[in-house]
């Protein structure tokens, strides 16, 4: 019962947000960038501007919808890059061990000791602003936790009987890592992954604030939040609505991740059936 609820409810939230973002033009009647009119600045929510307006008189509703495109892309794509790097390093380090493990463990420790935002900042400074470099910067800086979890799981899984059995059956090490080790650590990796998406959305906000994310007029939830900081007393709606959007997205992703983890677990599936 709960199993289905997480998966469906989380999935539904994610799907709605995704739909609203992709088909944003169908739902809004103000352009998020061009319809700036200082006469309309800082209006509270009303029939025309459902979420109110910001300091430049732009429609917060349409900016939230359009902004989801950037935020979701950044969250999902950069976390996918993170998960891939983390899994690649983590599984191989745990399974192979030895020098490679020492190297990877050292690298993860270094990564963890540098605040990932500072590191992303450095990468952005080299690559220059823009969505592409944002994805790369966030995708290269936040894989340490995935890596650590993958390494420790691989370390304990590799002594399991079925891994030994796979070796005696002639499986190559790479095949063992993919078919025997990876599927058995998918639960914690999914949880870390969905949490990481939330982190990435927030990190994008911080980078945008520093002028290194998405270029100013174009909306993202992060940049909207930072823009609205000075207005929090006079026009709280400009901050509240993107905040709710981030909250709902992160919640939806986490529920979906939990649900997916349980769904992929054969124990949970067949107990139900």
């Amino acid at each position: 019962m709960r199993l289905r609820f997480n998966l469906l409810f989380g999935g539904a939230i994610c799907l709605i947000i995704l739909t609203l973002g992709v088909f944003a033009p169908l739902f809004v009647h103000h352009d998020p960038i061009l319809d700036a009119n200082l006469m309309n600045a800082e209006l509270p929510p009303n029939a025309d501007f459902w979420f109110g307006t910001d300091s430049q008189g732009r429609d917060v509703f349409s900016r939230v919808l359009y902004g989801s495109r950037v935020s979701l892309t950044v969250g999902i794509v950069s976390q996918l890059i993170n998960s891939c790097i983390g899994l690649l390093f983590g599984i191989s380090a745990g399974y192979i061990g030895g020098r490679w493990d020492e190297f990877v463990s050292g690298l993860t420790n270094v990564m963890l000791s540098i605040p990932s935002l500072i590191f992303a900042l450095a990468i952005m400074a080299i690559l220059g602003p823009g969505l592409g470099s944002l994805l790369i910067a966030l995708g290269l800086t936040n894989w340490s936790w995935t890596c650590r979890i993958a390494r420790s799981s691989a370390l304990s899984l590799k002594s399991q009987g079925y891994v030994q059995a796979a070796k005696t059956l002639g499986y190559s090490d790479i095949r063992i890592m993919i078919t025997q080790i990876l599927p058995n650590m998918i639960g914690p990796i999914l949880v870390i992954g969905t949490l990481g998406m939330g982190d990435a959305i927030l990190a994008e906000a911080a980078l945008s604030y520093l002028g290194l994310g998405i270029r100013p007029p174009f909306p993202s939830w992060g940049s909207m939040l930072t823009d609205a900081r000075e207005l929090i007393a006079v026009a709280p709606w400009a901050a509240i609505f993107p905040g709710i959007a981030i909250f709902l997205t992160v919640l939806g992703l986490n529920l979906f991740g939990d649900g997916l983890r349980d769904y992929l677990d054969p124990h949970m599936r067949t107990r139900k059936a």
Binding site: G161, Y162, A165, Q180, P183, L264
Partner: peptide, 17 residues
Amino acid sequence: MAQMVFQDPYASLNPRQ
């Protein structure tokens, strides 16, 4: 040439397969 039957029938089968 050679195969093995393991002691612990719980840990020796991949739960995801």
